[in-house]
Design a protein around this nucleic acid. Structure first.
Lengths: 179, 179
DNA sequence: GTCTATAGATGGATAGAC
DNA sequence: GTCTATCCATCTATAGAC
């Protein structure tokens, strides 16, 4: 492995892409702005990524990894299945405040995708399926886990639209009653 | 009122915009494609709308009106509050199949908005608030209505991501239990 | 209302020099 | 890896002629 300092450039591109794609949206973020803010040359970018779509894919992979890192930390805090599930909803609260209610990276990406980008759509489906499995493994009740996943998704998009935490509070309240 | 044939051009633009914005997304749909498919001249378009944003706004207003038309038809079919609420979820099923799981016009729009387009974001919030009131008036239970609204939103986005109806079925099942 | 022409910016992507 | 120059397409919007 001779890639020792290469990660620096690639990582700077990915971090900048993560910020811009999330704040402005994927179609509204141009390559020119991306390289300007990342401080890399255009030729360097195209040495690490073949297309803009490749950057989107790599960025989503990175964010997915970070997301499940946060999820498992939240799960570790609860001392019962019920407490673990509720801890995930508490994590969601903190997350939304931290990102200023810009919603879910994956929901946002799927909405902004062009019809032909099937590979990325598939990746997002896998991410969401994995999130569903987190609840399913905690609860050992497939049907209940589906309901909670649905409330989680609803809380994500609704809080983004409203710009406040009330949907998460509503979801958490109902989850507590269901468990 | 001298506007008797003017609606034709304006309406053709709006209908085409509705189709393209919904299928391809707002940023990915260009004015040039819009006028080409609507069969109007560019100068004509700018006679009816000041900016592309104005078209988005008018399109959302039109779709919102049509949406609540469908909702009240669904509500009219039920013979009890519970049946009326469930009828709305049945309507959602038909809607999603008809549009091939492209999701909610308003959720999609809010995700694709640039940060500065506050007026349109406000309109979408009002649309969703009105949808919440539909459930609230049927149930006379504010907190229960919020939960059902949340399940509705979750079913919308989840079915879009998955590309099937299982989230709506899950939502409907839980709603039936809650009522 | 239509048509064409064009402005002026920006899009993604490539090539060559260093 | 950097820089600059450039390709061609597309973007929103305006102007002028008919």
């Amino acid at each position: 492995m001779k890639t020792q300092d290469a990660p620096t450039v690639r990582q700077r591109i990915l971090d900048t892409a993560a910020r811009l794609f999330y704040q402005q949206g994927y179609p509204l973020t141009g390559i020119n702005q991306l390289i300007a803010e990342a401080g890399v040359a255009k030729a360097s970018l195209y040495q690490h990524f073949r297309t803009k779509d490749d950057i989107l894919h790599a960025y989503l992979q990175q964010v997915s990894q970070q997301w499940f890192q946060q999820v498992s930390e939240a799960v570790a805090q609860g001392h019962s299945p019920k407490a673990k599930v509720l801890a995930v909803f508490d994590m969601l609260k903190e997350f939304l405040v931290a990102v200023n209610f810009r919603g879910c990276n994956f929901q946002n990406a799927v909405v902004q995708l062009a019809p032909e980008e099937q590979a990325i759509r598939t990746f997002i489906q896998a991410h969401k399926a994995r999130m569903g499995r987190v609840f399913a493994e905690l609860l050992a009740d497939e049907s209940l886990a589906e309901e909670i996943t649905l409330l989680f998704e609803g809380a994500l998009i609704s809080s983004q639209i409203r710009g406040d935490l009330t949907p998460v509070a509503t979801a958490r309240r109902l989850v507590e009653r269901l468990l």
